[in-house]
Design a protein around this nucleic acid. Structure first.
Length: 767
DNA sequence: TCTAGATGGCTTTTT
DNA sequence: GCCATCTAGA
């Protein structure tokens, strides 16, 4: 116990040892949030306040769940079994598998990932002859998901015009189709569980009584449905529910675009009458200047719960700021600085390059590659999303649930078996006529089309039969061979990687079977034990027998079903060579939760960061500012920020102003590495900053002489200017010469203006 | 059925 | 400028 609580600061200690009541912990970046969460759980158990079975800990990502479990088992001698630690989706999956009948799902229901969902919607639109120009599949998908995230079924959605009414209609058709196929999308996992518990009182009360302590990580990222789910399981308003311990940071809320509602934090505070609010403001990560920058920046946001980070680490170095003439030069500068860092003894893996959007990585990657600096880019295709792996998964899905039309369509003609579009169209019509799956509709097909289709069905049935008694890895191997997938890719010229990925599936299955507690030899197909065997049967006060979803997954679902869930819910790693000491390239979003000694924040330009589309949305700029806050607080020792005058974007050269966030940072914490007058026009003339110095005179003067020669009244494209009315801007283009010279100037928030250079009162922005 | 060429779109991301 | 997706034609 002493050991457990030792080294906690007073706020952390207070949070860990709070009485068993609802609590909100405002945990700033680098304040030891995960530590508090896990120590709280360990403390509750070790003081005998709760048994492991009374703990429910919810996270958003599998990574966070795993980390929590790892830390817990390192902290406690007792094992973590019986404790529920997982993602919202993972926990819901477990509940639905156990109570599949009450949830009106087939036992082997399958989970659609985003790709599957979209292709399903496309199919739906086609089948109903809907113009997909008028109803873009993606729009419909967002519509459906957003409504589910709000807890709204099609029947509950209010439509105000014809288009919306149609969308609602399609939403209903989509749900019907999912139900027929026995598949659920991600949002459905949550909504279905919520509805299950709402409808089923004994079940609801059972879980409410069981979970005495519910702990939630990254609470600011919850959407409305997730919050409702938590309220339900915590028995809000019943007077006998468990205590909800929510940990979050409103300043790090960066997922509003996918439905997260920071407002849930204050709703929680008022609705649960939270008396225990603790702020963790002691930062153990960053040096002073970095923290000052973060604090001063985020203070520009209104509607904060209010929090200020402090450190004992001392000021450290200033934030280094660099203005490049072009994105190419920005990348080169990063290379140079990174080389310096490495030669000063930094590990490459302690250097992170952050950007707002993925498109920015290309130029940087190119520069790093040319310089021979090893790097890894986060955010590529995940293992289970690769086409060949998805194909293999589809075959496995058909073994487990042949009525999954998405899986059927994906592989019915892959590798090609002479089953063309027309055949499938007919099959689809038949399926629709009889209200059955495409697989089930095959016997209704006649002629040549019919025979090639039945051959496919025979293939699936054959493999299913052949593997009846086999363990999962063996089943996977047989499937890969019998389906012809391995052959197909082996024959392809560039198929070696794909073959390797497919073969990796066998080891993935082996590993999975071991980790999930299935016997290595357990038959993959064997149905789960009867409900009486699975978990402990519980008799509630009304004499109703309830099965608790407590049993290990092995008793709730077959190895094959479990493996398929795993493939959907945990798309796998996307990190390349993990072993190598490589620089880390990623978006600011994916950097959340990570920390590095050295961090570059790149592309700090108006329109890019803050992103231009954010200014249209309500509160968009505040979210961008939080994103910037997240970026800054990733750095431990050294932070770099950079931007450029010229950038290639969408195939066009753009001239952006430096980000407004620079004006919101404390000047004394910044160190400008470059004067502000270098223009891209120079760069185009292959004149570098050094050249300008050599040619003599002040740099400004040189630039001006060159501009005057060009007859642009001394002004250059790319130059930063100040206008009395419009403020700071960047010259984007100059037309005409002499007295008729007019300039197009991007004034950022004041918009784009065309000004007559002989009339407009402009001043040069120097530094 | 396969391939080349045209088209469109383009912020962020986990499950 | 790049990528995924669609379409026309061999």
């Amino acid at each position: 116990m002493q050991n457990l609580l030792h080294n906690l600061n007073p706020e952390q200690l207070a949070a860990v040892t709070l009485p068993p009541q609802n609590a909100l912990i405002l945990a700033g970046a680098g304040s030891g949030k995960t530590r508090v969460l896990t120590t709280r759980i360990a403390w509750l158990i070790q003081t005998g306040q709760v048994s492991p079975a009374g703990i429910l800990a919810v996270t958003f990502t599998n990574k966070a769940a795993k980390e929590m479990l790892a830390r817990l088992s390192g902290m406690m001698p007792i094992n973590t079994r019986g404790m529920w630690v997982g993602t919202f989706h993972g926990l819901c999956n477990r509940l639905l598998r156990t109570h599949y009948r009450d949830a009106a799902l087939p036992q082997s229901f399958q989970i659609l990932d985003t790709q599957d969902q979209l292709s399903m919607i496309k199919r739906l639109l086609k089948a109903n002859n809907i113009d997909d120009e008028k109803f873009p599949p993606k729009t419909l998908m967002y519509f459906i998901n957003n409504n589910k995230d709000q807890g709204l079924r099609a029947s509950a959605v209010e439509a105000y015009d014809a288009v919306e009414r149609k969308m609602v209609e399609l939403y209903q058709l989509y749900d019907d189709q999912c139900q027929r196929e026995g598949v659920v999308d991600f949002a459905e996992l949550l909504l279905r569980t919520y509805e299950l518990l709402a409808r089923n009182q004994p079940l609801r009360e059972h879980y409410q009584q069981r979970f005495r302590h519910i702990l939630v990580d990254e609470f600011q990222d919850t959407n409305n449905l997730q919050y409702a789910w938590l309220k339900q399981i915590a028995g809000h308003g019943t007077g006998r529910g468990g205590a909800l311990f929510a940990v979050g940071d409103d300043d790090q809320s960066i997922y509003a675009f996918r439905g997260a509602n920071v407002g849930n934090m204050s709703s929680f505070e008022s609705e649960f009458q939270v008396k225990n609010l603790i702020k963790l403001e002691q930062n153990y990560r960053s040096h002073g200047h970095i923290l000052d920058a973060a604090n001063v920046l985020i203070a520009n946001n209104s509607r904060r719960l209010g929090k200020n980070l402090r450190t004992d680490a001392g000021h450290g170095e200033q934030v280094r700021v660099y203005e490049a003439s072009s994105d190419l030069q920005e990348a080169q500068w990063i290379v140079d600085e990174a080389k310096n860092l490495v030669s000063e003894g930094s590990r490459r893996s302690e250097i992170a390059v952050l950007y707002r959007s993925n498109a920015q990585s290309r130029v940087i990657e190119h520069a790093l590659f040319s310089a021979g600096l090893p790097y890894t880019v986060y955010g590529g295709l995940r293992y289970f999303q690769r086409a060949e792996v998805k194909h293999a998964i589809a075959y496995l899905q058909l073994m487990d649930n042949p009525h999954n039309d998405s899986a059927f369509l994906r592989v019915v003609n892959f590798p090609t078996r002479g089953i063309g579009a027309r055949t499938l169209e007919q099959l689809q019509n038949a399926a629709e006529t009889y209200g059955i799956s495409m697989y089930a509709a095959v016997p209704y097909m006649v002629g040549k089309a019919g025979s090639s289709l039945s051959a496919f069905v025979k293939l699936i049935e054959g493999v299913r039969f052949e593997t009846q008694q086999m363990a999962l890895p063996e089943l996977v191997r047989i499937t890969l061979e019998s389906s012809g997938l391995l052959q197909h890719y082996a024959n392809e010229k560039e198929g070696a990687d794909r073959v390797e990925n497919l073969e990796q599936m066998v080891s993935a299955a082996t590993q999975f079977v071991g980790e999930e507690g299935y016997g290595q030899g357990a038959p993959a197909h064997l149905g789960p034990p009867s409900e009486a065997q699975a978990g402990a049967a519980i008799i509630n006060a009304d004499g109703v027998e309830i099965l608790d979803a407590d049993a290990p997954m092995a008793t709730v679902m077959s190895p094959l079903s479990a493996f398929l869930s795993h493939a959907s819910l945990e798309a796998g790693d996307n990190q390349a060579q993990a072993g190598q000491d490589a620089m880390q390239l990623m978006t600011v979003h994916s950097a959340k939760g990570l920390e590095f000694d050295n961090v570059f924040i790149t592309g700090l330009e108006e329109g890019l960061f803050p992103h231009e589309s954010s200014s249209k949305e309500d509160g968009g700029v505040e979210e961008e500012r939080r994103l910037m806050y997240v970026a800054i607080t990733r750095a431990r020792k050294r932070l770099y920020m950079c931007f450029c005058q010229t950038r290639m974007l969408h195939g066009q050269t753009r001239y952006n102003m430096k980000s407004r966030f620079f004006d919101e940072l404390p000047e004394e914490s910044l160190k400008w590495l470059s004067p502000r007058v270098q223009s891209h026009w120079f760069a185009n003339k292959k004149a570098t900053w050094e050249d300008a110095k050599l040619t003599g005179g002040s740099d400004n003067a040189v630039a001006q002489r060159m501009a005057e020669k060009a007859g642009t009244a001394g002004w250059r494209i790319g130059e930063s200017v100040v206008h009395g009315k419009f403020g700071e801007g960047v010259i984007v283009n100059i037309e005409g010469s002499g007295a008729n010279c007019r300039a197009q100037i991007n004034f950022g928030s004041a918009g784009m203006k065309v000004l007559d250079l002989s009339i407009a009162k402009l001043e040069r922005l120097g530094r």
